[in-house]
Nucleic acid binder design. Structure first.
Lengths: 129, 129
DNA sequence: CAATACCTTAGAATGATTCTAAACTGAGAA
DNA sequence: TTCTCAGTTTAGAATCATTCTAAGGTATTG
């Protein structure tokens, strides 16, 4: 775990190690800063909300997380950085992964001259019937 | 213009008429509340920012606008409510429409039991090369 | 162990958006 | 026309996620 941080140029501090294990110790997760902070506190880890924000951004910069934007008021961080998309359950403000291999987006125009595609996000907004 | 508002169950007030003409008087537009407010002021229309927010939401509720979420800190409102997608130019925080007819999203899994698809948003994030 | 560059943090600051409560106004009734 | 009232507007306060500041810790290297 520490080596993973070192490889990213980040010192393996107590706080970063703790957040790493919360984030990457289980399967794929979608967390908000606030939620992760609560979870850490509940696990007996003392750290400030600012540190959670810092860490999430540093991990994102290092490619260990991806930020997902769905439009609620909060930002989500996804531990799955591979090619995939999302269902978004509006009523519960919850994200569900959609594996990327199966999905294909056809017919996109070429981007404006001088620019290139960085990423294609597909968000399927769903509501209960 | 007034009839359009009446049809939506909204009184055609001075403020709503003015914002309507700014929004729908030209081609398709992507605006933020702040930007629309500035534009109105520049056009000599006195109204409060709160009214701009109220109006944008009412128009959205009436299906005259669609809210687009790209993840900056502001919300965008799109006068094009038809089937289409977006390029998002991160560096300029600017949206560009992608006509919907050409684009096809294949292979999406069926949504979780009891829920149904409300909308599929495709956002192509582009950066300058 | 000492030096130092990197980290963490409490609390303040920011900025978009929403809320509140009071004043205003369109539209139908009288 | 005037009255009435539900629907509107609004200034300013309040909220809330997020970022900033500056002061105090802590890995790491020599």
């Amino acid at each position: 775990m520490a080596s993973r941080l070192r490889k990213a140029g980040l010192r393996p501090t107590r706080q970063r190690l703790a957040l790493s294990s919360l984030l990457f110790g289980q399967g794929d997760r979608h967390v908000t800063a606030e939620a992760l902070h609560c979870e850490a506190q509940a696990a007996g880890i003392e750290l400030s909300l600012a540190t959670v924000y810092n860490t999430l951004h540093q991990f994102t910069g290092a490619g260990m997380l991806r930020q997902v934007t769905v439009g609620g008021d909060k930002a989500y961080f996804d531990t799955n950085t591979g090619d995939h998309h999302h269902f978004y359950v509006d009523a519960e403000q919850r994200l569900i992964d959609i594996p990327g291999e199966k999905v294909e987006v056809l017919g996109l125009p070429t981007p404006p001259a001088g620019s290139e595609v960085e990423r294609v996000d597909v968000i399927v907004r769903i509501k209960s019937r």
